[in-house]
Simulated scan of single mutants.
Amino acid sequence: MQDPSELYRFETDTDQSSARASVMLVSMGGFIDAGRTQRLLTEHLLAAHDHTVVASFDLDQLLDYRGRRPMMTFDRDRFTSYEDPSLLLYRLTDRDGHPFLLLTGAEPDYQWERMVEAVMELNKALGVDLTVSVHGIPMAVPHTRPLGITAHATDPRLITQHEPVFGTVQVPASWSALLELRLGESGHDALGYAVHVPHYLAQAEFADAALAGLGAVSGVTGLSLSMTDLAAAAGLNRAEIAREVEGSDEVKAVVEALERQYDTFMEGRERPSLLATGVSELPSADEIGAEFEAFLKDVVEDDKGKGENTGGIGSV
């Protein structure tokens, strides 16, 4: 392996002696992020909290530009701008002045293991002892009920309040997941939250998922994170979704069916006996996992052939 330290450089925005923080959030835009959960959360944190750049990464070594071409602007007879991709490590401060780090940008196409080693070097140099990630996954749930979260961690003690939803499931790897695995193998703490996003909103912006993820991060890290603007955006987003649902009998029927399924499931959890009505008809963890694997297979097949949907309720 080539020297991992040659993948990054410290920037002058932040004095390295003051860049230390115990928590690092990782937001790398990986394979799937239903509801644009990760992107919304990241944009909110950078808008709501003071921040400086600690380090930048050499993306020319990490990206397949032809696989996901950056955008350029052409104006009449010349090129006028280029959306230069970036991968940056920020230092932010919470509302009480406590520092934390945010690693965000394009997920590497190449050199995953070397990139993991580089981030582990930075963790050691900057005093990070907990690494956290958040993203959205599509689930057969209604947006009108409380959102579920699947937690995963290098040590079960970090997620004692969360009950598993899945059994054993094979999913396509992401760089963030590999980082979590390698951190665990080296004895470091890392955890992640996969927020359950209604499948019909997977390709749209669903701010409630980002808000739920932000609350989970605040709860596990103790950071005092601003939520006001994101909560307001979630309220507006919720109202727009309600209008779209009311305007489509097909979508409305899907939502109502999911509400019945959700309510039956919750009733079964409250009355866990053989007489609990409808529980036997609910999918098992293995069945849920199989459905999720099928969804991911479809995404893999369609990923390169579809343009990005900028909003609205997805296909049902």
Rank of each mutant, 00 (worst) to 15 (best):
A210Q: 04
E267H: 15
V197F: 03
E180K: 13
M24F: 06
S18A: 12
A125Y: 01
I241R: 15
R66Y: 14
V128H: 11
G35P: 09
L126T: 02
A285N: 11
L225V: 00
L158E: 06
W112S: 04
E113M: 13
G312Q: 06
M24W: 04
L88S: 04
V128T: 06
S86Y: 11
S218V: 00
L87K: 04
V54H: 04
P198C: 04
G247S: 05
E11R: 10
Y193P: 06
E6Q: 14
L122N: 05
V134F: 02
S17A: 15
F79H: 09
A207S: 13
A276P: 05
P4I: 02
V197I: 02
R9P: 01
P172S: 05
V141D: 12
L63G: 08
A118R: 03
G29C: 02
T264V: 10
T228F: 14
G30P: 08
A209F: 12
F74Q: 02
S186T: 12
V116W: 12
A290R: 09
A210F: 03
S280V: 14
Y65T: 06
T221K: 01
R271H: 15
F100R: 02
F265P: 04
L158M: 06
A212K: 13
E205A: 11
D77M: 09
L181Y: 12
E11N: 05
A118S: 13
D96T: 11
D129N: 15
A47D: 13
L258M: 03
G268R: 07
R66E: 14
F166N: 03
R269G: 08
G184E: 08
F292A: 07
G105S: 03
L201M: 11
Q61E: 12
T160E: 15
G222I: 06
F265G: 14
G127W: 03
S22L: 00
D249G: 09
P70T: 01
L40F: 05
E83T: 09
D75F: 11
A207T: 05
L92Y: 10
T42M: 04
S22Q: 00
I32E: 11
R9K: 11
G268E: 10
F265A: 14
G307D: 09
F31A: 07
